[in-house]
Design a protein around this nucleic acid. Sequence first.
DNA 1: GTATATGATTGGGC
DNA 2: GCCCAATCATATAC
Length: 348
Amino acid sequence: MNYWEKERKNKTDIQVMVSICGIQDEDPPDAQLLRLDNMLLAEGVCRLEKRGRGGAVAGAGTATPGGCPNDNSIEHSDYRAKLSQIRQIYHSELEKYEQACREFTTHVTNLLQEQSRMRPISPKEIERMVGAIHGKFSAIQMQLKQSTCEAVMTLRSRLLDARRKRRNFSKQATEVLNEYFYSHLNNPYPSEEAKEELARKGGITVSQVSNWFGNKRIRYKKNMGKFQEEATIYMGKTAANTTEVGVPGNHASCLSTPSSGSSGPFLLPSAGEAFLTLRTLTSLQPPPGGGCLQSQESLRHHPTAPRPRVAGSGPPPDLQLRHLLETLAASIPVCLIKFWGYAGKSTA
DNA sequence: GTATATGATTGGGC
DNA sequence: GCCCAATCATATAC
């Protein structure tokens, strides 16, 4: 094999290797790589290898989707096990790629050095070739990272998705929420503070409280008959709490006012006050065109409901309350429903 | 296995 | 940003 043949072969070898790998002079997509790195770090697939990258959230691997604080560590064990598998595969593949990159670089460098005995090859040319190889392997690594990210996302959606991991609230949480709902049936829109307090009492998150009230309002409206019994139970329960202490307006079991505004007409912080107000509310003339409140806006800002203060002559407030409780207990839910507006909406 | 209950998500309106 | 309404996906009851 003469010089030219040898030269041609060497060139061909390199070209074949380069073309097989599709090496081109291209800049690695740093931004995408950075995103993938950050995600893998956040998911705990890889560790911080380089300082100054930023963006990776410390402890992000322990966060639970939806922020639910419920105890789901048992359910997460499967997730963790599979994540560990993914991590192993990722590192194994990464190691393979890095080794292949080293071997390939060495091989190409050797070929170039061999060639340099026959023709002048500048260090820059070697450097350029090595850089191209590294760039290509970086691209391969990025594909690996992308695949790993996809695998993790799939795993998360399968095993950690909040919907799939739905758990019924504890009895206490449901009780707390129902008590508030039925004691504020005329305006079941808890303020942010009330939501926080309900969340704390029920051991759930504020957004779960919001979800619960959203669902409850809709389902109550859709099927009021079904909730009559429940309404009576909770209204009675709250009323009993109130009468037990013998002071109407005792708010020990109640939470802060609804979100309709502190100066609004629905300052009914207890079932006792709700009942006192009932007489006035049910005597209100329905708004024109349909009897009851027509829109969400009117639900939140009823224009006419007065403050339920009993003053002047007549029996003392506690007796009034007791009387009202006795005479109205059975009909309270219906009255409140009517006032709330949905009954009118569906029956008018 | 099916029906129902229930918590979460999504999309649109305001 | 909050709410409603529809819907999804899972839990629970039968």
